[in-house]
Amino acid sequence: MFFTLSTSPGIEMEERKWEDLEFYCLVNVLGRVGMKSLLLDVPFVCKSWYKASLDPSCWKYLVFPKDLDSELDFTLIDRFKEKYKIENCSVDAFTKFAVGRSHGNCTGLYLPNGCTEEVAKYVADECPALITLSLPYDSIRCESSIVPSLIGKWEHLENLWLGSSENLVNIITQISLACNKFSGLRISSAIIQEEEASAIVTNLPNIKFLLLRGARIYFENLVIILQGCKNLVHLDVRDCLGFDSDDEAVLELASNIKTFNCEGSTLHDYDDGVIDHDDLVYDGYISN
């Protein structure tokens, strides 16, 4: 493979091989191609690319597909098994393998659906530098979830995206104790009652980004957040159930927030079932 260099217009271009590119430059480029290419394409180009793909810097930001295990689709795991001639590979094993490639340097991690608490434990031990973490519904859906007890290991955490609001009070209590730079919380398919709203205000008074799109949150609980979180610069409560998007009291309380989105929110669920909460989980899981 070749790339061309030219110092100025009109000067004949010089052809050079990609494998001759300085190693640190190659690592910098490959760190941007994504997990799928790092696993299925890059290592098979040439020896220098394979060597560069093993550098932990290429694995600092890991976005797993939402579904790694599906009977309907040919998933990334299926392609991985086919490429490497592997007979069996679970979601947990694949996730640990990819996370392990970072050798503790991972700063952004978006875990897939289907991984167990064992993966959460592994991430807590192997990724102390995490700044952004997205946990799927599976990891936090039961009251006995270990996630709250793991938060203390991510002292650099600034952004957390959750697949549900279960264990929310315990999770944000631990965040307040361990994560001094925390600024952003996103929850998919949330149910925000008075306890959750009060916990957000009490434990995260300086939070800047709060995304609750598609949540069930009554007017009075939204007011608790609007009155208590004075440093919010972005609040997303679109498509929520429990208050009207044109409520004057809500709009007045949110007038000091730089970006306030509440379109589609309604007091009553006139069209029950219209909101696809599974889609909202994925939207909250990947989108910025």
Rank of each mutant, 00 (worst) to 15 (best):
V250Q: 01
E194L: 11
Y282K: 09
F243L: 09
L5R: 14
A190Y: 05
G273Y: 13
V27T: 07
W18M: 11
L212F: 02
V201F: 06
G228Q: 01
S134I: 04
V169S: 08
E14S: 13
V45H: 06
V29W: 04
W161E: 13
W49R: 05
E15S: 14
A197E: 10
E194I: 03
L133S: 00
N88V: 11
H268D: 09
D271M: 09
G184C: 12
R141G: 00
V274L: 14
R101N: 09
K181L: 08
W161S: 15
N206W: 04
S245E: 15
S183G: 03
T116G: 06
N206Q: 08
C46F: 07
R16N: 10
A254T: 06
K51T: 03
N105K: 12
L38I: 12
Y137M: 03
P56H: 07
K153I: 02
S139E: 12
M35T: 15
L185Q: 00
A178R: 00
E166F: 13
C127G: 07
G31N: 04
I77N: 08
G242N: 06
F209D: 03
I200C: 15
D247F: 05
W59E: 03
S265N: 03
L222S: 01
T259R: 11
G228P: 08
I200G: 03
F182G: 01
W59C: 04
T4C: 05
F44S: 06
K258W: 08
L160T: 03
C229F: 01
E71K: 13
Y61V: 13
Y137W: 12
C115L: 10
K208A: 09
F94L: 08
L267K: 14
N261C: 12
K230H: 13
R141Q: 15
Y270W: 14
E71Y: 10
P65E: 07
V233Y: 09
G273H: 12
I146P: 00
F3V: 02
P65A: 07
L212Q: 05
T173N: 06
I151H: 13
K96N: 04
Y50K: 15
Y122P: 01
W18L: 12
L30M: 09
E155A: 01
L72Y: 15
